[in-house]
Write a protein that binds this DNA or RNA. Structure first.
Lengths: 340, 340
DNA sequence: AGTTTTTTGAGGTACGCACCTCAAAACCAT
DNA sequence: ATGGTTTTGAGGTGCGTACCTCAAAAAACT
């Protein structure tokens, strides 16, 4: 059977109280006593029963997902998954809540983060563009004992397990590979569309995309990125300009998760030849597009996995535990009609 | 705060003992008292604290993975993941053990399953080909209170959440789509290689593959499946025969996870034109092949996910709990050099 | 009505640990 | 040896539930 604290106490020749002091490193234990207990831990292969420990502590984990407010379908899916995770993790005393960021303003995000109460919140998953304000706010949170992770988009950091999301450079490269191989060696121009190129994710995807196309598919030329800013009129205008300015458009790569605007416009155009279309994320719109052959491939990340991974990482950090890296690696998924 | 059994007792106007009887549906409670308690549960939104419940029960979960014994790299990866999961789930009182099936004989598998002791094992994940013997053995296990899941390969059942693994028909179709699109419209012959076509997975993959190719890529013709039986001499012979018999081989699809034998032979051949190669599973060999451009794409399923999913499903069944379907769906992953 | 049967309550113990208090023991320096 | 300080032990309580016993109450019979 699994050794308990009592077994430990006996093996180390000390009392339960001392074992407890060592385990929760409370002060007032002589160094060689600590060593004796640690040796016993090694010897017995003792692992603290976290279930019982948390019960005793009456501890629960309260996490917050800080998300932007938009009508984005990807975001909606994410929120749904957070709700699901809330149910699934309820038995493990984990509670996740969504807080929307009213505006994209970094100051406001930082302000919101600053207002979080360490008594009420143990960890935050932050989905927000990179900015010095947010970085500072995160540092202050860490100081106050609130754990943070960058969620999907966000800070670039050396600390690899601070980020939950895919490698966007690799995702772009994957899109590039697909675009190249699907083009069947025929020359053409590739249109790249984003809501905004200010987002780090879009930038990185574009970079990865270009790298592969330039290296392996010289007969394809990638046009400068178009930015819709989520504005229908603007989108219609710049798309029309691109198509009439560049007759040989053979492919379209939509960088942002919200592809409805651009793809609806493109599909409404009088088609001479249907361009190859690659987009990101498995939204209802994109899924329908894939099934009806209007989209050729999707590059996605699983929202459920993202949410659960963020929760697991935050919880592990609260417990000062290691994570299982292989479980938390978010995969770049490729979706066709066949494996949807 | 979260309501406890005490709150429940008070709200229902009964004692703790009665609440306990209702919760664990023990006998000796009048129907209308049961209803009163259930109403209180609804009203307070009570959910039993599984952590405390399992503590009190002193319960742990002992699971067994029944795996074939081969030198298969995919299998090795799987075993490694089981070891990892063992660590990761240790805090939740889950223990997973691997048992190897000495031979592929259905009788032997059934015998092994029959020997499992319900006192020592709570659930089994079975990776074994479909057979009446195994099906019967599973039924007997269910009767003795041992939960089972079919793991990766295995029984076909209506019961969807009895199977942990990918939809192999869809996986084959995905391979077909890739083969078709990567072929750039040029005609050619496709070689399909398997260890054996007796395995249900291989059959289904082939079916899905053919469906897509026949429907959308009529210029490609798929040759009859070659079976290596894991025998190097035989493999060399039939491969050589195929290549010399069919000059226009433009693609190779390896159905089985173990692709070393076939692909090593193919790569050693004097190449006129490198055929497109699609294989299954992320083994060290396949990964290296992908990175060195000898393999064009891999269709994979995440072994870590498979293992954890099997464990979560078995545990949920032990607790008579529902699973989170979206988490347990194993995705058909597509791997290129870029998103490896 | 009385009798039997069923249902309920009160209370205890246990699970493995956290956290607290108080007193005893061990150590230290003088 | 003295007093002071640090370390340790013994013991208790609680977390939320499971499961047990025994007696009391309620319901169902005759």
């Amino acid at each position: 059977m699994r050794p308990t604290t009592k077994d430990l106490a006996q093996a180390a020749g000390v009392s339960l109280a001392t074992v407890d002091r060592v385990l929760n490193d409370r002060s007032g234990v002589r160094k060689d006593t600590v060593d004796r207990v640690n040796q016993a831990i090694e010897k017995l292969g003792f692992t603290r029963n976290l279930v019982a420990a948390n019960l005793a502590r009456g501890k629960d984990y309260r996490f917050v997902f800080l998300l932007p407010r938009t009508g984005d379908q990807f975001l909606e899916g994410l929120i749904k998954r957070i709700g699901e995770a809330n149910l699934a993790f309820a038995a493990e005393m984990v509670r996740a809540e969504v807080i929307h960021i009213p505006e994209g303003d970094p100051h406001q995000i930082a302000h919101l983060l600053g207002k979080l109460d360490a008594e009420r919140v143990n960890g935050v998953a932050i989905m927000a563009p990179e900015s010095p304000q947010v970085r500072d706010a995160k540092a202050r949170l860490a100081h106050r004992g609130i754990e943070t992770v960058s969620f999907i988009s966000g800070q670039i950091t050396q600390d690899h397990d601070d980020f939950v999301g895919i490698d966007n450079h690799a995702a772009g490269a994957t899109a590039g590979r697909l675009m190249g191989r699907f083009s069947e060696g025929k020359p053409g121009k590739i249109l790249v569309i984003a809501e905004t190129m200010l987002a780090r994710d879009s930038l990185e995807r574009r970079l990865g995309f270009d790298e592969v196309i330039n290296a392996d598919y010289p007969h394809l030329s990638v046009l400068p990125s178009l930015e819709t800013y989520g504005d229908a009129d603007r989108a219609a205008r710049i798309l029309e300009a691109s198509f009439s300015g560049h007759p040989g458009i053979s492919g379209v790569y939509v960088l942002s998760s919200e592809s409805r605007l651009a793809l609806t416009l493109i599909n409404a155009r009088p088609k001479t030849r249907q361009p190859l279309i690659i987009a990101h994320e498995r939204t209802p719109f994109n899924e329908a597009g894939l099934l009806s052959n209007q989209i050729d491939a999707l590059i996605t990340q699983d929202p459920g996995h993202l949410v659960r991974s963020a929760i697991r990482i935050l919880r592990a950090r609260c417990d000062r535990r290691d994570i299982l890296a292989s479980q938390e690696k978010i995969r770049i998924e490729i979706l066709f009609k066949e494996n949807i």
